[in-house]
Design a protein around this nucleic acid. Structure first.
Length: 649
RNA sequence: GCCGGUGUAGCUCAGAGGUAGAGCGUUUCCUUGGUAAGGAAGAGGUCACGGGUUCAAUUCCCGUCAUUGGCUCCA
């Protein structure tokens, strides 16, 4: 007998060579039917793996991330099987599960496939799935593995196997199909009920552009047809909320090929919305002791040589601008920090002056590769809600925590309730990627982790994700469709103060180095607004939305009264407009709905007679008749309750 | 930057080797209306740009640009 410890702490006595599926069945038949993967002593195993020692066992269903992983990984095998059946000369390479589905990279040789071929591949996959082939993992010797793939002229798998150690190599079989695989499969192919191939893309072997380009086929699969339907509906919804589409429809921003790719143009409505966001943050920052500064869009190349940006990114940036007479070199600023360091250097500071907090909505320019540009989320010119805090070593902790408070206040007020923090630290195997001393890096990393702990943040540590000058904490938010986005960032930096020789005089009458904290709660205005658009589907909070109210006179007879109402609203700083087109009310309401205007005021004979307005909310709710005063209070109260929902300072 | 898709009216999109269409929007007229589309008429396009093939190219081919899905990269 062996002792199997389950996640709830209970211990099952099982016969030796019981499988995870046997254990599941001993819990309940119903549960066992849903079990699709298992982990034994921290190793993913097959549900049919025979357990021959005591240990802890976790059983996974579709509802677990690792269950989905096994499911999608197994689906990739089915995809490979179908591809090999339909294209016998194709060479398989790798086919992992990804966050949403799976892919397989295939070398189709002379042949090429397109999404027109998806249907027949899907059909073949479903045909294989229905036959409930069992996935069977078996060990093979390195020599056998190599000869198997050499016989099939698959140099990719041969390369993979050559990097594996003999004794650790397993093949997975189902039906007559064999693939090199370390395991983690669902019991049989029949569990996969719904399959959809999503897209096709080029991908380099091992991600290196010097290598051969392969065809990557993306797909997703589910245990029920219904899941697939829901997933496709979610994609549809995401498409409807695409900020590029909404930004165009709501006239917020645009691009022009004459201006240049990746250089957004803010239209009047978008600009007004952005200013409201900026003012909101300015107000909070003022409370938190920040001072606004402004710096130019270019700076001498030397500035960035000093900061280290030039050495690190110069070659892949917009190239220097030369002055015509003196041949001086200037760079478009890729970051605001060097400029802020120079503002700090304008005068000497005492420890009593610190912390100093300089904030700027600073527009920066970065050369992003053309293929990487995407709407407002990836652009070449954007505005950071940047600030730099210069403080003493014993202030870092508190300042960092204050920034966390500010960031959370901003996120929550804007309706992002689901967030986690990501602490990005050095990649210890690649010290050349970073500037600064090991000692300072350690101090900075520890300061961030301490602050995250103290604030009770839900955080994960990512090694190798740090900026080149220091570690950082990023807020990852989950939007209304469950998608994750990286928003604000906070970074501790011991390096730039050294490079710019920043000092302050301590109580010991000696000069000391301040420590810098870089932070941007929104990240960039462009990116934040894009994400807010997708999160809200264009239904912005009332305080932000371009038009809060639209006035719909029933006919032109009520023009004067309608104009009077608008004037009253404007006196209350409510943003409204009149739809005085020669259209019926039904049409005007429909158009206002499409434009997502939160309130519609219907104005006709009854309203004019009673000196009131009829209020309809976006979505159709009828709030009845009320005076303009009452309506103004209603709006103001709604805005205040949103803005004061979370306290800051 | 690399690989694939796309580029037709302000917007969304049909179309085909023989010189271009729809809906929405816009303009004018009729209509003066009550909670998600009233009616009529009109304007609007070097079919992204540059080459090539052809009697004929917006359509086929090549290149450029933009855009899009990936890859790589990301201060």
């Amino acid at each position: 007998m062996i002792k199997i410890t389950l996640p709830d702490g209970s211990i099952k006595e099982c016969a030796k060579l019981s499988t995870p599926m046997d254990v599941a069945k001993s819990i309940s038949e119903g549960f066992a039917r849903n079990v699709i993967s298992a982990k034994f002593n921290d190793t993913i195993v097959e549900t049919s793996t025979e357990l021959n020692q005591d240990g802890s066992l976790v059983l996974y269903t579709w509802n677990d991330d690792l269950g989905k992983k096994a499911f999608w990984h197994s689906s990739a095998h089915i995809l490979a099987q179908a591809i090999l059946y339909l294209y016998p000369n194709a060479k398989l390479t790798i086919g992992p599960a990804i966050e949403k589905g799976f892919y397989y990279d295939v070398d189709f040789g002379e042949e090429s496939i397109s999404d027109n071929d998806f249907k027949k591949i899907e059909d073949k996959m479903l045909e294989f799935a229905r036959q409930k082939f069992e996935f069977k993992l078996r060990s093979v010797s390195k020599a056998d593995a190599l000869s198997y793939y050499k016989g099939r002229n698959n140099e990719f798998k041969v390369e993979l196997i050559e990097n594996l150690t003999d004794g650790d190599i397993t093949f997975c079989d189902h039906a007559d199909f064999t693939d090199l695989c370390r395991g983690g499969h669902i019991p049989n192919t029949g569990i996969v009920k719904a399959i959809k191939l999503m897209s096709i893309a080029g991908a380099y072997w091992r991600g290196d552009e010097k290598n051969k380009q392969l065809t990557r086929v993306y797909g997703i699969s589910f245990p029920k047809q219904k899941n697939l339907k829901e997933y496709l509906e979610l994609l549809e919804e995401a498409k409807k909320r695409d900020h590029r589409k909404l930004g165009k429809e709501l006239e917020l921003f645009a691009f022009s090929r004459k201006v240049g790719q990746g250089l957004p143009l803010w239209l009047p409505k978008g600009t007004a919305l952005r200013e409201r966001l900026e003012n909101f943050l300015k107000k909070a920052q003022k409370k938190a002791g920040y001072e606004m500064v402004m710096t130019p869009h270019i700076g001498q190349k030397e500035l960035y040589v000093t900061s280290g940006h030039y050495e690190k990114y110069g070659a892949d940036s917009f190239q220097p601008i030369h002055t015509p007479k003196e041949d001086e070199e200037f760079l478009l600023k890729p970051m605001n920090c060097p400029h802020h360091c120079e503002i700090y250097n304008v005068k000497p500071y005492s420890y009593k002056d610190l912390p100093i907090r300089f904030a700027e909505f600073g527009t920066v320019y970065r050369y992003e590769q053309s293929g990487e540009l995407h709407g407002l989320t990836r652009v070449r010119g954007f505005t950071q809600d940047d600030a730099h805090i210069f403080c003493t070593p014993d202030q870092v902790d508190q300042e960092f925590k204050n920034v966390i408070d500010l960031s959370l206040y901003v996120l929550k007020t804007l309706g992002f309730e689901n967030y986690t923090a990501q602490v990005s630290v050095r990649d210890l195997d690649n010290p050349d990627k970073y500037i600064g001393t090991v000692e300072n890096w350690e101090k900075a990393e520890q300061a961030i982790i301490n602050a995250a702990e103290d604030k009770g943040l839900d955080y994960v540590i990512k090694s190798g994700e740090a900026a080149f000058y220091g570690p950082k904490l990023d807020f990852m938010i989950k939007d209304a469709l469950g998608r994750n986005w990286q928003l604000g960032t906070i970074q501790v930096d011991y390096t730039l103060p050294e490079r710019f020789e920043l000092t302050y005089k301590g109580s010991d009458n000696q000069l000391h180095r301040p420590i810098m904290i870089h932070r941007a709660p929104f990240g960039s205005m462009e990116r934040f607004i894009a994400i807010l658009l997708e999160h809200t589907g264009g239904n912005f909070p009332l305080w932000l939305t371009p038009e809060q109210v639209i006035l719909l006179p029933i006919s032109e007879k009520y023009k004067n009264y309608t104009e009077k109402v608008l004037e009253l609203l404007e006196n209350h700083e409510i943003r409204g407009l009149i739809d005085d087109r020669n259209e019926k009310t039904g049409k005007k309401i429909r158009d206002a709905e499409v434009k997502k205007i939160p309130f519609m005021l219907i104005i006709g004979q009854q309203e004019e007679d009673g000196d009131v307005i009829s209020v309809r909310r976006h979505g159709g709710e009828d709030l009845g008749k009320m005076t303009v005063e009452d309506f103004s209070s209603l709006i103001k109260n709604k805005i205040n309750s949103t803005l004061q929902q979370y306290k800051f300072n």
